[in-house]
Amino acid sequence: MRLAVISDIHGNLLALEAVLADIEGRGVDAIVNLGDCVTSPLWPKETFERLGELDLPTVRGNHDRWIVEMPEAKLSPAGRFARAALSEAERAALHALPPMLEVSPDILAVHGTPADDSTYLLEDVMDGRLAPAARATVAARLGAAARPGGVVLCGHSHRQAVVQGPEGCLVLNPGSVGCPVFADNPAAPTLEHRSPHARYAILTRRRGAWGAELMALDYDWHAAARRAAANGREDWAVAMVTGAVSPA
């Protein structure tokens, strides 16, 4: 079994197409999407339409939920851009996505944690940066989802990781397809160094054991930066080409 895992596309259609092209040549059995599909000043509507063509099993991310639930005044600028770009029916379709998916009897897909799409599963914020969470913290966040020999797929932090959790459970974060750092996050300028690559993962089961490949792909991130700048978001343009946001 080979399962491609994508997450946190954030409306970056160019990065998504690069990932899909790479997946096509790797002989996977299926693709699962862990959410945060469109929120950005990039191509939210076009990305929604492309994902509609693919019809992938998809988990609802916090931004997919907020595009309906969050009051306009509290929504981030990127969230307001995406909300305006989508029709009411399209926004409702994102909101209707399930908060978790049982991909198979031993693979659970979530966005953040099994209980909360806005909480990191494998990281904590320390001094304005993400740091690996303590074992007890990860175990508490996993709860009953930590099954012997099972897998939990998560996104949200935009950081690739493979962790052996409690009960021998494997936790896989594929990283972000199209958003190395969410520039609207107030902590973005203080985050650790990242890169602009389009990221995803392949989960493979061989002889009863799970393994994972973490992918980081080159794509035309300068074009993505030009799109952000054309939509008035120079901070996003910087993030697209450097994986970082400059302090104001």
Rank of each mutant, 00 (worst) to 15 (best):
V38D: 10
A198C: 04
A21T: 08
G79Q: 06
E72D: 14
A136P: 03
P41N: 13
G208K: 00
D22N: 13
A136H: 05
A115D: 15
N62Y: 00
E53S: 10
T39Y: 03
G27T: 03
N231Y: 02
H10Y: 13
R65C: 05
E17D: 15
L170N: 03
V32M: 07
H111S: 04
A4R: 03
Y200G: 04
L14K: 01
L20T: 10
R91W: 00
G165T: 04
A188T: 05
I31M: 07
H63F: 15
G143Q: 03
T137M: 01
L86D: 10
E24K: 11
N12C: 12
V171L: 12
A115I: 01
V151M: 01
D36P: 06
L130I: 07
H63L: 14
D117K: 05
P180H: 02
L20S: 10
G112W: 09
I67P: 10
W66I: 05
A144V: 01
L122M: 03
A230H: 05
P98G: 02
R60Y: 00
I9A: 01
L86Y: 03
W236A: 13
A18P: 08
L3E: 00
L34N: 07
V28S: 02
S157R: 02
H10F: 13
E49F: 00
A229M: 09
G27E: 15
V162L: 14
L153H: 08
W66V: 00
A144G: 07
R60L: 03
V163M: 13
V245W: 08
G35Y: 05
D220C: 01
N62D: 05
P71F: 02
L172Q: 07
E53T: 12
G208W: 06
R141N: 01
V138N: 10
A78E: 13
P148F: 06
L16C: 07
L101W: 09
S157A: 15
A188K: 08
C154F: 01
G149H: 09
A82Q: 08
A84K: 14
F81K: 11
H63V: 00
V125Q: 03
A212N: 07
W210R: 06
I107P: 08
E53D: 13
R2M: 05
P44S: 10
H95I: 00
V152C: 04
R226L: 14
P41I: 04
T190L: 04
L121F: 06
S246A: 13
E72S: 14
F48A: 01
A139V: 01
A89Q: 15
F182I: 12
E88Q: 13
I107K: 04
G178R: 02
A30V: 04
T47D: 03
L14R: 15
G27A: 12
V110W: 08
M100W: 14
N173W: 05
L75H: 07
A78N: 09
G149D: 06
R60C: 13
T113I: 05
P99H: 06
V125P: 01
D36I: 12
A84N: 12
T47S: 09
A201L: 06
L191G: 08
R194M: 06
P174Q: 05
I9C: 11
P99D: 08
P148K: 09
R91S: 08
G112Y: 02
E90Y: 03
V5M: 10
D235C: 06
V152K: 09
S87V: 09
S157P: 05
A230R: 14
A216L: 09
A92T: 10
S246L: 15
K74E: 15
A230W: 12
R65H: 12
P99T: 11
A93D: 09
L108Y: 04
